[in-house]
Design a protein around this nucleic acid. Sequence first.
DNA 1: CTAGAAGTTGAAGTCAACTTTAAGTCAAGC
DNA 2: GCTTGACTTAAAGTTGACTTCAACTTCTAG
Lengths: 155, 155
Amino acid sequence: MAANVLTVGEVARRSGFAASALRYYEGAGLIEAERSEGGQRRFERSVLRRLAFIRAARHVGLSLDEIRDLLAQLPAARTPTRADWTRISRQWRQRLDREIDALVALRDGLDSCIGCGCLSLQRCRMSNPNDVAAAWGPGAVYLPRRLREPVEESV
Amino acid sequence: MAANVLTVGEVARRSGFAASALRYYEGAGLIEAERSEGGQRRFERSVLRRLAFIRAARHVGLSLDEIRDLLAQLPAARTPTRADWTRISRQWRQRLDREIDALVALRDGLDSCIGCGCLSLQRCRMSNPNDVAAAWGPGAVYLPRRLREPVEESV
DNA sequence: CTAGAAGTTGAAGTCAACTTTAAGTCAAGC
DNA sequence: GCTTGACTTAAAGTTGACTTCAACTTCTAG
């Protein structure tokens, strides 16, 4: 393929995303593409880094909406630098910390439950809907359904 | 309501699950119900503890299929004892440990990524699909989409 | 020039775990 | 006996993130 642009198939192969996902991401405003005379997508090489970010963010459990918001923070005028990427990556790190904290709290709650064997709707932290809500607090816990399935787009 | 049985509405109120969810769970084989002469559901009181278990297991991120499998380990002949519940609860604890480990590994990988600013498809642990798959290993990471939304069934 | 691989679109399908809706039946208090 | 709230069912709708499909067009190697 020509000069410095990539077809959707090439991007798919190199990024590990399915071509259908790339089209979907374009529609969702996460990535952009020029068009050839015949109307086919032509991606700049920089889309690969963008996709790398998307993959990592998906692994952390961010929704596409959230990822789009993060990507919007990148400078539109110039090609993003390493520092630009670093700056926005730092934002999920906090999220991840909160997730881990919540899980540890969950595990501790489970331990106390196993200990008492109660699972009482009235008293138990694990099963009482109100207590559970209170225990997690308003800071939602975000976690990847994505992590459930081993990644294997790149077969 | 009569003697020792509960209507779907009563169970809903006391368990925090919506009545529609209870019907769904019955259809999915997670809970059982007798029927009144007129065909309405009549739940035994023990269904409440079962539901408490279901709620807790959902919070840990188990799917309904998995929960059904766990519940199938309960003795059919007699009413489950505290020891029975404890035994099957212990099984998710390991799961939770693995989830936490995976998240911590993810965070460490993220740290190294922020440090290097690379996000390279070829090298970076965070964004390379193969590396990511390898990093998680075959032991899947299970985490609750459920935890994303604060629980508020009991409004 | 042409075969065939790769690309295009919009619409529909998928998955899980429910909820909602419609149209009707049951139960209980007065 | 009647009203009214609670219940019944099957079927369709919801959400997010895609995939699949059908019908067609474009690109490129030979």
